[in-house]
Design a protein around this nucleic acid. Structure first.
Length: 509
RNA sequence: GCCCCGUUCGUCUAGCCUGGUCUAGGACACCUCUCUUUCAAGGAGGAAACAGGGGUUCAAAUCCCCUACGGGGUACCA
């Protein structure tokens, strides 16, 4: 049988990395079994609609390499894939449930509900629910005479509530957690159809999952407590249930609860895949892309948060993840996000990336930084030097930007103290030899410097650090011989002359 | 409060289903050494965990129960 999976986000803001992981696991499983993967937008709460969120979700997942077969941006056999556009369908099914005795109409106002909760709370009941006990005190089609119900249906707003059956133990099998059971006395008569005619999540997700032929529902653990309701809904409709799998939550690094959109930039690392600008407040949150992550680095790390491959390898391409992934190896407990490890995983991917692709990725970043313009060919030489020296793309630029930004003198005091006066004194003579050096490559430059140092009775550690400061202004970095080669004869000389102008000659006054 | 789910190194986790092979394995981070002009990368090594208590058993990280702790849910939000 063909598997059909879906990712069903709500466009109430940017997708956060927990959502990306949920999408990823669904995607991985769909692709592994050659099934179908659907994007469904759950926009049934009109009050929480955020402009741009849906586009953001699609763009983010696409950047991550997570692709869909059907969705609002693609179409498909069960279109529309936006729940707000399927409104009529849900109302029809909600009424069907009423006819079958699995649901009823309720007319209580918000104030009346509030009042009921207060009353029962005062009577010593904690968190009063609309359930078998309280429903008999409320205004609904179970308590009101039929004529009044008809009258109210015509004249006032109403909701449709699920009628939780009494005295039953609802059991279902979770692919990750095993059997879970809840007694119906713990459940309340959830609203299925809201007074604005829109369904709640519970109704919409069951109806759509059935209609769209979903075989596996993989979602966050926060849905575990409402799954018994969904199970009962399937029973009420007489539909076959999909398999359920509830993923462990992604926790904040401090362990204080699940990661949420509101964490924004507060944690010291991005929680969104892409930059997000809040359309209401104008507040901007950085994303993983802007931070310099490779999509394959992010998804690889995310895959590891809550899932473990059967082998000890940790670095996977998306294709390899698809092959290796399985629900059996998903763990049950929540995982804290560890930015350091995410960086490391990304670094591994940077090192695996062909130099051409790495260069193509870094080139626009380089230009955007306002650094002197550079050709891709030139940048590729620099990337060969930089690629092992950074975990995030911008760090690669930082590692080699001195090639295009000559050091400024005087150096800061802490660096100045590293200059070797002996070398500075000899430098003018060295320069003359260096200028004439043939051929101009790292190997001959290395040979030259070593022989000079030897004849001056200086060690390399007396020579190189000072020379590096003179040429790059930095105390550390790639091989100095290679740097000199790439800098070229002219630029090397120019930088050394400027250095000597500052430090070389004692000016007589 | 009530309900549900969870609990192995600081973190992510392997092992648990199918008790013995676990003096509990790997990875990130950390520390030491090594390579190197330096930093990074690499190599070698180190410190570091079965939440607690009861059972069952010849034997328990693994099975059962209780407690504690953590998280989630408890909306006409998803």
């Amino acid at each position: 049988m063909k598997v059909v999976l879906r990712f069903a986000p709500s466009p109430t803001g940017p997708l956060h990395i927990g959502g990306v992981r949920t999408a990823l696991y669904n995607y991985l499983l769909a692709r592994k079994y050659g099934g179908i993967f659907i994007l469904r937008i759950e926009d049934t709460d009109q009050t929480r609609f955020v402009p741009g969120a849906e586009e953001y979700i699609i763009e983010s997942l696409s950047w991550c390499g997570i692709t869909f077969d059907y969705g609002p941006h693609i179409g498909g056999p069960h279109a529309p894939y936006r729940q707000s556009e399927r409104k009529a369908i849900y109302a029809e099914y909600a009424h069907l449930l009423v006819e079958r005795g699995w649901a009823y109409y309720a007319f209580d106002t918000e104030e009346e509900l509030e009042e009921m909760r207060r009353r029962f709370e005062a009577a010593g009941m904690s968190a009063p629910q609309y359930n078998a006990i309280t429903r008999s005190y409320m205004k609904n089609s179970l308590t009101l005479p039929p004529e009044e119900v008809q009258e109210r249906l015509r004249s006032q707003p109403y909701v449709i509530r699920f009628l939780v059956p009494r005295g039953r133990e609802v059991r279902f099998y979770d692919e990750i957690r095993g059997w879970v059971s809840v007694h119906t006395k713990e459940m309340d008569d959830k609203v299925l159809l809201k007074s604005d005619g829109m369904p709640t999540y519970h109704l919409a997700n069951v109806v759509d999952d059935h209609l769209m032929g979903i075989t596996h529902v993989i979602r966050g653990e926060e849905w575990l407590p409402s799954t018994p309701l969904h199970v009962l809904l399937y029973e009420g409709f007489g539909w076959e249930m999909p398999k359920f799998a509830h993923l462990p939550l992604l926790l904040r690094p401090d362990g204080g609860g699940k990661l949420s959109k509101r964490d924004g930039d507060q944690l010291g690392f991005p929680v969104f895949p892409l930059r997000w600008r809040d359309p209401f407040t104008g507040e901007v949150s950085e994303g993983y892309r802007e931070r310099g992550f490779l999509p394959e680095g992010l998804t690889n790390y995310l895959a590891l948060l809550g899932w473990h491959p059967a082998e000890e390898r940790e670095i996977f391409t998306m294709e390899e993840l698809i092959q290796a992934f399985s629900l059996e190896r998903v763990s049950k407990s929540g995982a804290r996000f560890d930015f350091e490890k995410a960086r490391w995983v990304n670094q591994q991917h940077i090192r695996k990336l062909p130099l051409e692709r790495l260069t193509a990725l870094v080139h626009p970043l380089w230009m955007a930084r306002g650094l002197p313009s550079i050709s891709e060919v030139q940048l590729m030489q620099l990337m060969a030097l930089a690629r092992e020296r950074g975990a995030l793309l911008p760090e690669l630029i930082e590692a080699v930007r001195f090639f295009y930004e000559a050091p400024t003198f005087p150096l800061p005091p802490e660096k100045e103290s590293k200059l070797n006066p002996n070398l500075v004194e000899k430098l003018p003579q060295w320069m003359d030899h260096l200028w004439a050096l043939e051929p101009w490559n790292a190997a001959s430059i290395e040979a030259f410097i070593k022989s000079q140092a030897k004849s001056e009775k200086m060690t390399l550690s007396q020579v190189l650090p000072a020379l590096r400061l003179a040429l790059t202004g930095e105390e550390m970095g790639p091989s100095l011989y290679v740097i000199i080669e790439l800098l070229g004869r002219v630029e090397t000389r120019r930088r050394l002359e400027r250095f000597l102008a500052e430090y070389g000659v004692r000016r007589e006054v």
